[in-house]
């Protein structure tokens, strides 16, 4: 039964991440965010903080069990998407991993509190917002691919195919 449940989780996470990605664009264009977009940004910031082992979560023990499992399942996708935009990081002038870590911390903070940068956490610059957009949008698409194989035929041996998004298997004998 994991198939349906995990499909729904992936669709929901993908939608939220895509909302957050598009909202980052709106912030950069200084357009107003609606309630859904603000909520999506906040969710993305809090969730990515749990997912990214490179930015320590101060109260990891407070994370809900369900969120912890979602984070475990999505973490490989997060790293894959991050590595995929490595060339863009270099193009933007990043040379050390500590700079990436610092940028990601700043990104999560901006997502959690859109339009209200705190002390030492200034607003994202245009190139940073672009990197943030690419990361979030890339993750949103990667999660959808796990549901729909990006339109390509699934390997099958019968008239049925068994979904295995995120390596979840169907419930059978």
């Amino acid at each position: 039964m994991e198939d349906l449940s995990s499909v729904v989780s992936l669709l929901t996470m993908s939608s939220n991440l895509e909302h957050a990605a598009m909202s980052l664009r709106k912030i950069l264009e200084e357009r107003e965010l609606d309630e859904t977009e603000t909520a999506a940004l906040k969710w993305a910031g809090e969730f990515l903080r749990v997912v990214d082992w490179g930015t320590a979560v101060p109260d990891a023990q407070d994370v809900d069990g369900h969120v912890a499992v979602q984070a475990t399942s999505i973490r490989p996708t997060f790293y894959a998407c991050l590595f995929r935009i490595g060339p863009e990081f270099k193009e933007a002038g990043f040379t050390k991993e500590s700079e990436v870590t610092s940028f990601l911390g700043k990104l999560y903070h901006n997502l959690e509190q859109p339009g209200a940068p705190g002390r030492g956490r200034p607003k994202l610059k245009a190139t940073e917002a672009d990197l943030g957009y690419q990361l979030l949008h890339g993750m949103a698409e990667a999660l959808l691919v796990q549901v729909d194989s990006n339109g390509s035929p699934r390997p099958y041996t019968t008239d049925e195919w068994d979904q295995t998004p995120n390596e979840f298997a169907i419930a059978s004998v």
Partner: peptide, 20 residues
């Protein structure tokens, strides 16, 4: 750029595989 995160990625894959 991703030395430490490449390690984390490897651990994340193994941990998730264990969960599955």
């Amino acid at each position: 750029l991703f030395k430490e995160r490449a390690i984390q990625d490897e651990i994340a894959k193994l941990t998730n595989a264990t969960r599955v």
